[in-house]
C-alpha cells in the first residue's frame, strides 16, 4: 500500500467524524510514529509517552481545523512535525533537568518496559546501531531516523522538518557517514 492509499480513507474519515477519523489516523500511522519515536528517544517507555502525546496533540489540533484544512492534510509529515517538535522540546528540558542516577538507564540497556519477545527479536547488532543514533546531532538523527527507519521520502522529511530538501539530504549523508565511522565493519567491510 502506498502512502496515498493509506491517506485517502483516513482524511475522508476525519472529515466525517473527528473521533472515528482519529482512530483511523492512529491505526494508519501508529507504527511509523512509534518507530520514529523509539529511535529518536532510545527508550521504549519514553517512546510510548512520546507517541501518545504526539497523537493527543494531533487530535487537539484537528479539533480546531476547518474542513478545508483537513481535506488537504498530509497526515504523515504532519504527524512527524508534531513528533519532532515534541522530541526536541523533551530532549531540551531533559538536558536542563537531567534525571538522577542514569546508571542502569544507559541507552543501550534493555528497557524493562519493552516486551521480552521484542527484545529477543532484536539482534545485538540492532541494539548497538540503535544506541549509536544517540551520537548524531539532533538534525542528523531526525533526518536519518525519518529517512531510513520510518522510510519517509526526502520531500516529506523536508515538509515535516520545514527545511529544504538539500538540507535534509546533507543531514542524512553526514549522519550516515558518522554512523559508518562509529560502527566500523564488524560484519561487513562496507559498514
Amino acid at each position: 500500500m502506498t502512502e496515498t492509499d493509506i491517506r485517502l480513507p483516513i482524511v475522508a474519515a476525519l472529515t466525517e467524524d473527528l473521533d472515528t477519523g482519529f482512530v483511523a489516523l492512529f491505526d494508519g500511522y501508529r507504527n511509523v510514529v512509534f518507530s520514529a519515536a523509539l529511535r529518536l528517544c532510545g527508550r521504549w517507555a519514553d517512546a510510548e509517552d512520546l507517541t501518545a502525546e504526539a497523537f493527543l496533540r494531533a487530535y487537539r489540533a484537528l479539533a480546531g481545523y476547518e474542513p478545508q484544512r483537513i481535506a488537504t492534510l498530509q497526515p504523515r509529515p504532519w504527524l512527524m512535525t508534531i513528533l519532532a517538535n515534541l522530541w526536541r522540546n523533551t530532549a531540551r528540558s531533559a538536558a536542563r533537568h537531567p534525571p538522577p542516577a542514569p546508571l542502569e538507564q544507559a541507552p543501550e540497556a534493555v528497557d524493562p518496559a519493552e516486551p521480552t519477545e521484542q527484545v529477543a527479536e532484536r539482534s545485538e547488532t540492532g541494539r548497538e546501531l540503535a544506541a549509536l543514533l544517540g551520537e548524531l546531532t539532533e538534525d542528523q538523527r531526525l533526518a536519518v531516523v525519518l529517512r531510513h527507519v520510518a522510510d519517509l521520502p526526502i520531500a516529506e522529511i523536508a515538509t515535516a522538518l520545514g527545511v529544504p530538501e538539500g538540507t535534509v539530504k546533507s543531514h542524512i549523508s553526514r549522519g550516515l557517514k558518522r554512523l559508518r565511522l562509529l560502527y566500523p565493519g564488524r560484519h561487513d567491510e562496507r559498514l
Partner: peptide, 24 residues
Amino acid sequence: HDPLVAGLAALATDAPAGLLDRVA
C-alpha cells in the same frame, strides 16, 4: 545492499498494543 541502511530499516518496530488507550 547497504548493510548500514538495512540495519537502520530493521530498527522499525510495531507500536505496542493498547497504546490507543493512552490517548482516547
